[in-house]
């Protein structure tokens, strides 16, 4: 969910880029830029789809309910986004566009770092030695067992006989 909120923020910035770049373009310019098909389907509105034209779909997201699995998934998503920004930078020639893409790429690196720290925190938590306090409320005997309830002794029959 955090990842998605962040991605919506990025989507807004990239959408703004596209909106500003296409503002006032003639149909000829749009066609020459390879946006003819896009223009036919969506005009100059910003529509969430992949570079190859596949619309955004929730199937691209994964969640398993296991913190190790999900955080690792999040970290992979950050790296995929970083690669995508790098490919976009390869293709871009406008320095103002490249600057925005570089900023967004840097965010992916920082967020990967943060998710890595969260993963480490979870792993450390899971590796902690656990103490189970299950004799707290139902112990009757001084040795800690529950045998022969009532008289305060188990007559040495339990695994930790009264000394």
């Amino acid at each position: 969910m955090i990842l998605e909120l962040k991605s919506y923020g990025h989507l807004e910035m990239v959408g703004t880029l596209v909106s500003q770049l296409t503002k006032g373009c003639s149909p000829e310019e749009i066609r020459a830029a390879g946006l003819g098909d896009y223009y036919t389907d969506h005009g100059i509105s910003v529509y969430p789809q992949s570079a190859s034209g596949v619309p955004f779909n929730a199937m691209t997201l994964a969640v398993k309910g296991d913190p190790i699995t999900d955080l690792t998934e999040d970290m992979a998503a950050e790296q995929k986004a970083r690669s995508t920004y790098e490919y976009l930078i390869d293709l871009a020639d406008d320095p103002d566009v490249i600057n925005v893409l570089k900023f967004l790429r840097e965010r992916e690196v920082v967020h990967f770092q943060r998710f890595g720290e969260a993963l480490r925190t979870v792993e450390e938590k899971l590796a902690e030695r656990k103490f189970y306090m299950n004799n707290m409320n139902n112990t009757n005997n001084s040795c800690g067992c529950n045998e022969d309830k009532g008289n305060g002794t188990c007559n040495g029959g339990c695994s930790n006989p009264r000394r």
Binding site: V110, H111, R114, E117, A118, T121
Partner: peptide, 10 residues
């Protein structure tokens, strides 16, 4: 915002 993310893990 960036510091918030940092503080979440520190």
């Amino acid at each position: 915002y960036d510091l918030q993310l940092y503080l979440d893990t520190h």
